[in-house]
Each structure stands twice: as structure tokens, then as C-alpha cells.
């Protein structure tokens, strides 16, 4: 059992120097499953002709890179996307985290029903809502504007930003909170020094998921953004959808590796097992 192996590794934390065989096994497995498709895609970004049964492309070149990156709209779209995504994530965190705390801890009328209702953000297929949504945005003159896209994408984040943090506040060990209160800590103090640190990794998971899924969201962006607002994935998808040349997609994909990788390192820092354990004194 992998689980057993993992746990026995954890049990003997003193002997860190031992070779991390479990980790190497995971690494090898993931390398094949995750990395291989990515590498193949990356090689396609440089391939001009690559036909079966050749193992490497018959002709390589940077032609598709030039075509893609010399386009102004790619760069404009990238900055625009980062702007929209950051705005959406920040507003969403500001309004949703307090709400999630309330859903997890406080008692108020209609709580369970309202909580369940957030499901409809993702569970009801978008096409059924297009006309109604478009009507609202048209009357507000938000079609084709930055804030229109921000608003519609903000709605799309509600489910993640409420449901995931609720599980975090729910999982906080109440005995610690009570102990703190018993020794005379104020409720605010308990929240900042006990509740929040315990919930933090999950809150960051929610932010990360929201950021990435908002960045790549297109359904709502098409409906409200066109013709003026064109985000990065909109450009990307119009490049690769029904395009015969796989290369455009591959180039944009490699192009997005850098920001993604930085984000992931940040994620490791925040969610990382060791950093967190130290915070808990575990």
C-alpha cells in the first residue's frame, strides 16, 4: 500500500536523509502521465512538419512563434486577461470569504437553502441563461466593457469561493478556539490567531482555483466581452479551435508556461506541507 509507505516515511521524520523512494516512484509515474503530453505539445510548438512514423519532427523552425508573438492582440489580450482575472479574484475573495465564514459558523434564516443555491452557478448549463443574462447586461450598457466581463466572471467564481472556504472554516479545530477563549482571548483575536491560520491553506487553494479558472473562462467572456474585450484564452481558442495547425495552440501553451510555473511555486510555498506544519508547531 502506498498509504502505508507514506505514513511510515512520515513516522520516521528524523531520518530525513533516507532516499525518498516513494517520491521517486510518484515522480516517475507523473513524468510519464503529465509531462509526456506536455513535452509532445511543446515539441509541436517548434515543429513545422511532423508526420508518422518519425520520432522527431521532419522540419523544425520558429515560424509559428513569429506568427504568434508578433501579433499585437496576443500581448494586449494577455495584460487584459491578467487585469480582469486579478480584479475578479480580489473582489470575489473580499465578498465571499466573510460569507463563507457566516455559512460555516453562524446561524441565520434560510442558511442551508441559500448555501445550496450557490450550486446553480455551475450546475445550470450556460446556454439556458444566455438570453436572460444578455438582457440584463444590455440594459446596463455593460456589453463589450471591462466591468461587464468582470461582473459576469465574478458570478462564475461564487461557487468555488464559498463552497471551498466553508469546508475550511468547518474543519478548524474548535477545541483550540475554545481553549484560547478560555484563557481570555477576544473573538477577533481567536479568529486571527487560531481560525484563519488553520483555514489559510484551503483559502489559498480556493484563490488559486478561482484565479486559474477565471483566467481560462471563455463562455461568459464571449457573450459579454465581444466585440471590444478579447481575453487571452479567447484569442488562444480562436487560434486553435478548428485550426489545422496544432502549432499555434502549442506556442501559446508554452508561452503560458512561465506565469503558470511561477504561480505553482507560490502555491507550494503557501500550501506546502512543511511550512504549514511548522506554523502549527506540529
Amino acid at each position: 500500500m502506498t498509504d502505508l509507505a507514506v505514513l511510515s516515511g512520515a513516522g520516521k521524520r528524523v531520518r530525513r536523509a533516507a532516499v525518498d523512494w516513494t517520491g521517486i516512484a510518484f515522480l516517475a509515474g507523473l513524468a510519464v502521465v503529465i509531462l509526456l503530453p506536455l513535452i509532445v505539445t511543446a515539441v509541436w510548438a517548434f515543429a513545422e512538419v511532423w508526420r508518422f512514423p518519425a520520432i522527431v519532427p521532419q522540419r523544425m523552425g520558429l515560424g509559428y512563434w513569429q506568427d504568434t508573438l508578433s501579433r499585437n492582440d496576443v500581448w494586449t489580450a494577455l495584460w487584459l486577461s491578467l487585469g480582469i482575472t486579478t480584479t475578479v479574484t480580489a473582489i470575489s475573495a473580499a465578498i465571499c470569504f466573510p460569507a463563507a465564514y457566516a455559512f460555516a459558523r453562524l446561524d441565520f434564516p434560510g442558511r442551508n437553502l441559500l448555501f445550496l443555491a450557490f450550486l446553480s452557478v455551475q450546475a445550470f448549463p450556460k446556454f439556458g441563461l444566455i438570453v436572460a443574462t444578455a438582457t440584463i447586461f444590455l440594459t446596463l450598457h455593460l456589453v463589450g466593457t471591462f466591468w461587464g466581463v468582470v461582473l459576469i466572471q465574478l458570478v462564475g467564481t461564487l461557487l468555488y469561493m464559498i463552497w471551498i472556504p466553508v469546508s475550511a472554516f468547518q474543519g478548524v479545530d474548535r477545541r483550540l478556539e475554545e481553549a484560547a477563549r478560555d484563557v481570555g482571548a477576544t473573538p477577533m483575536r481567536v479568529f486571527w490567531s487560531i481560525t484563519l491560520p488553520q483555514a489559510l491553506p484551503t483559502l489559498f487553494a480556493a484563490i488559486l482555483i478561482t484565479f486559474v479558472s477565471t483566467f481560462y473562462e471563455t463562455d461568459a467572456a464571449w457573450l459579454i466581452g465581444l466585440p471590444n474585450v478579447r481575453t487571452m484564452p479567447m484569442v488562444m481558442i480562436s487560434f486553435i479551435n478548428n485550426a489545422l495547425e496544432v502549432q499555434y495552440g502549442a506556442v501559446l501553451f508554452v508561452f503560458l508556461w512561465v506565469p503558470s510555473f511561477l504561480l505553482m511555486l507560490a502555491a507550494r510555498r503557501v500550501m506546502g506541507a512543511d511550512a504549514f506544519a511548522r506554523g502549527l508547531g506540529g
Binding site: 517520491g23 510518484f26 515522480l27 507523473l30 513524468a31 503529465i34 509531462l35 506536455l38 488559486l208 482555483i209 486559474v212 481560462y216 484564452p233 488562444m236 481558442i237 501553451f253 503560458l256 508556461w257 503558470s260 510555473f261 504561480l263 505553482m264 511555486l265 502555491a267 507550494r268 500550501m271 506546502g272
Partner: peptide, 12 residues
């Protein structure tokens, strides 16, 4: 391992 396992998050 974590970086690899999370990578698909960034792939549309």
C-alpha cells in the same frame, strides 16, 4: 511531485 501533479490545472 506537487508541481507536476498540479500542472494540468493550467492546461485548457
Amino acid at each position: 511531485v506537487q508541481s507536476l501533479a498540479l500542472f494540468p490545472l493550467f492546461v485548457p
